[in-house]
Amino acid sequence: MSTYATNMFKGGLKLMIDGEPCSIIEADNVKPGKGQAFCRVKLRQLKTGKVLERTYKSGETVEGADVMESDMDFLYSDAEFWHFMEPKTFEQHAVSKAVMGDASQWLSEGDTCSVTTHNEIPILIEAPNFVVLEITDTDPGLKGDTVSGGGKPATLSTGAVVRVPLFVAQGEKIKVDTRIGEYVSRAKEKN
């Protein structure tokens, strides 16, 4: 496994910290005018998103994390796992609900999403920023209502629930921003 000295630290570098793969958010050299130089690092734990802060002695080395990010196709889910395939190698990966996290509520079969693997095992699934999903259940809306106002909850084909404007009806397809879990617009046909 490769190791990295503090002078190679930069945003995006993947390191093993306390046995967990992490990505550097920022790294700053701290050199007191009179004293030992350090490198102060802010990292994100890839599995949990938790932000860590660490200080290293300048020149110290830290083990790199064999982390890859690639696009994979979502095939289907069964009772236990979500199944993905690498489009180039056709290699398949089964991902547990715990690793799926939030992404599980946005994916439809055939969607392509970003999968982060550590030692070739998926540890983080990111849904596309925008997905188009069909509303399977919502209260009938009022005619002539516009985007303003409170809106109403709507259940989508994946089971996710988002707030939609009153004029949006069951059976319609809508575009959702998965990063904030919010309705964006009605989807045009063939979207």
């Binding site: 701290v30 007191p32 004293g35 030992q36 350090f38 102060r40 802060e53 200080t55 002695k57």
Partner: peptide
């Protein structure tokens, strides 16, 4: 002294 500096910086 370096440990003290480390604690101070961190």
């Amino acid at each position: 002294d370096e440990l003290i500096q480390y604690l101070f910086a961190t």
